[in-house]
């Protein structure tokens, strides 16, 4: 514990390219890039699956298989295979981010399509009968109703990304995980604990940010039913 306090008390750890602000910055930057890419892929796909019911079994199977696949092994395999394909500055970053995206997709996908599927069927029928176009039904009824499950899916994805980005320091990704890896290499337990504490704080802050975002964007009309709609197991938070 004393090593931990020492680490935070040292002004040298608060500046420069290995300082805490820079590392937090990188950690968040890579996480957000990965989340953004995952959203771009998973949300439209989830809308398609939820709307048509096609490919549901494939998606559920993929989500489960990815849960069993050890992330550390996956990271190392992808880096070893893909590193030769990238120019020097991206040699570790790009493959690591690829894995982050891959791991984030199932959670967002599942949240989106189950959200759309569990949107009140009679409300959808009523909207159609009243003359909403299929696009209007989607944007004005289904998506707002799917929002609680979607946000919960994105939250799970974000935590998975932040967690995996920490591990990815092992394959040289910049970020808070570096303190844990470098500390371990130098038997500097204070640095390790400091890195772990920072990662935990970042994860908790992001969790709170998502809770807040949910409060602001989910209609109060849907909030009561949040607890009754069981989040499917495959959308369970990842670690």
């Amino acid at each position: 514990m004393s090593g931990l306090i020492e680490f935070f008390a040292d002004p040298g750890n608060w500046s420069g390219s290995t300082g805490i602000p820079v590392r937090i910055g990188y950690h968040l930057l890579y996480s957000l890039i990965a989340l953004g890419l995952a959203l771009v892929i998973a949300v439209p796909l989830g809308i398609y699956v939820g709307h048509t019911g096609r490919g549901e079994a494939v998606v559920a199977g993929m989500a489960n298989a990815l849960r069993a696949l050890p992330t550390l092994g996956l990271l190392i395999v992808v880096v070893m295979l893909a590193a030769p394909l990238f120019s020097s500055s991206l040699v570790f970053t790009a493959p690591a981010i690829l894995v982050l995206v891959l791991l984030a997709i199932p959670s967002i996908l599942t949240g989106t399509y189950t959200g759309i599927q569990t949107a009140d069927r009679s409300a959808v029928d009523a909207a159609t009968g009243l003359g909403y176009t299929p696009m209007q039904v989607l944007t004005r009824v289904q998506l707002p109703c799917a929002l609680p499950l979607m946000i919960s899916g994105v939250r799970g994805a974000m935590l998975q990304i932040v967690s995996t980005a920490t591990v990815a320091a092992y394959v040289s990704l910049n970020g808070l995980g570096r303190y844990i890896i470098d500390g371990r290499a130098n038997n500097d337990f204070g640095q390790m604990a400091a890195g772990a504490a920072l990662v935990a704080v970042v994860a908790l802050v992001l969790e709170l940010a998502f809770l807040l975002a949910g409060r602001l964007t989910i209609s109060p009309g849907l909030r009561r039913s949040e607890r009754r709609v069981k989040v499917p197991a495959s959308a369970a938070p990842a670690t």
Binding site: D120, L130, R140, G221
Partner: peptide, 29 residues
């Protein structure tokens, strides 16, 4: 869509939009 907008539609259990208030449900169309 044109046809449906000329015809009011009421169903069992009402099928109200759960994310809208009563007033905005009525004013939705």
């Amino acid at each position: 869509v044109e046809l449906r907008r000329r015809i009011g539609y009421v169903i069992q259990n009402a099928g109200l939009f759960p994310h809208r208030t009563v007033l905005d449900n009525v004013g939705a169309l």
